[in-house]
Simulated assay, not measured.
Amino acid sequence: MTYTLAKQERAASGRRSVAGYLGLPAALLAVLLVLYVVVHSRTLDSIEQRLVNGPKLLQATGQHLALTAVSTIGVLIIAIPVGIALTRPFAARITGPTMAVFNIGQAVPSIGLLVIFAIVWDIGFWPSIVALVAYSILPVLRNTMIGLRQVDQAVIESGRGMGMSKLAVLTRIELPLAVPVILTGLRTALVINVGTAALCTFVGAGGLGNIIDGGLVSNRQLVIVVGSVLTAVLALFVDYLAGIAEDVLRPRGL
């Protein structure tokens, strides 16, 4: 009886069991172990040794994480306030044109966006960050608006009837109820940024794309596989961490 009630409570809360949390990390660790065995079972030539070694891979992974983290923070700083503003009555006339502007980011191919910023600005870390923000901002912006608009108007009116100000209603009712939808958009943006950051190597920003590009240029299939697998594992692990954050931050009962 107690076990059944506990299971029902977990299902109602939407949170996974311990085994559910450990499944994906275990699978990703197994993939990395297989990759390690494959690499160390071969005799690497000088080019492969230069591209596939511990310090080089750690540096590229660190650069990739920095590109992903900073660009995602930039997305949150811009998308959530703009999404809130566009759901207010005063912004009704500019919502359509504003969304059209933000749609441009995803309408342009990612590599094209990176090249445009490299041409009009510079190459390196910060132009790549701006390009990544422009390319991945739409999911968070759209989901912020959807999450706020789906809040029951009766709940909002109840808050106003209790004497709450518009700001209090927004921060204590609307945003908490919109959190699950906003976090879904954030997970999408994170995965987009991890994948697109691999292209930042072409504009001098580093990342795991350096490994993949080095393998392509030198025609070393093993190097290409290592860079690609690490990028895929990183994307899955970042999505996994975002899923945990979604479980933790989701208001109880939603």
Rank of each mutant, 00 (worst) to 15 (best):
V155K: 11
V191K: 08
G215I: 15
F125I: 00
N193A: 09
A6K: 12
S71M: 06
L167F: 02
A12Y: 11
V18Q: 10
I137Q: 10
L35G: 15
M99R: 07
P55C: 08
D213Y: 06
N53I: 06
G227C: 01
V179Y: 13
N103K: 10
Q59L: 11
I212R: 00
R42S: 09
P97Q: 00
L76T: 06
R220L: 07
G163M: 01
T68Q: 05
R172Q: 10
G14W: 15
V238I: 12
V203W: 12
A107K: 11
I224W: 01
T4C: 15
L167D: 09
A134T: 12
T196R: 08
H40D: 06
S41Y: 04
G62Y: 08
K7A: 04
T87F: 10
K56E: 13
R252K: 13
L22M: 13
E157F: 14
A189E: 08
A30I: 04
L29G: 03
V52Y: 14
V203D: 00
T43D: 06
L254Q: 12
V181M: 12
Q221E: 10
I137C: 02
V37N: 14
G112C: 11
A107E: 10
M162L: 03
G243R: 13
C200S: 01
L32I: 06
G112A: 05
R250F: 15
K7G: 03
I192L: 11
S17I: 06
V38K: 15
L222W: 00
G195A: 13
T196P: 04
Q106T: 02
M164L: 09
L236S: 04
P55M: 13
L190Y: 13
T196M: 13
D45G: 05
I94K: 11
Q8E: 10
E174L: 11
A107Y: 10
T2L: 11
I137S: 08
L32Y: 02
V115Y: 00
A232F: 00
F125N: 01
L148C: 11
I212A: 07
A205C: 09
A198D: 07
R42H: 12
T68G: 02
V120N: 00
L183D: 14
V108G: 01
Q49I: 10
